[in-house]
């Protein structure tokens, strides 16, 4: 990828970060907490995938590297999800 492609990704990431803050500044966190929660976390996931895919070049690596990363992610999510569920 050349510098133009990297710049486009950067602009998108910057805009999404701003959008997350705007969600709060607009009062959505107070008025509709769980909708705001979902929106903000989805934006974070999109940003993270963008950084991993383009800045860390996962898109161009063998799929096995993505599976390696997903392995760690799934383990962390399993711990978090199951532990939190256990006390609901």
């Amino acid at each position: 990828m050349d510098w133009k492609g990297y710049t486009v990704i950067y602009v998108v990431l910057f805009a999404f970060a701003t959008a997350q803050a705007v969600v709060e500044f607009a009062g959505l966190v107070d008025s509709a907490y769980w909708a705001a929660f979902a929106l903000i976390m989805v934006l974070s996931v999109i940003k993270a995938v963008g950084v991993a895919a383009y800045y860390q070049h996962l898109r161009w690596e063998p799929r096995a590297v993505t599976y390696l990363v997903l392995g760690g992610t799934v383990a962390a999510l399993a711990l978090t999800g199951a532990a939190a569920y256990s006390i609901l």
């Binding site: 590297v65 390696l68 990363v69 392995g71 760690g72 992610t73 383990a75 962390a76 999510l77 711990l79 978090t80 532990a83 939190a84 006390i87």
Partner: peptide, 21 residues
Amino acid sequence: MWTFLASDIVLFGAFIGSYAF
């Protein structure tokens, strides 16, 4: 490096998971 980062994902995941818990 990727293998180390996979481990680091779990490290931070456990920190964030602790916070969530």
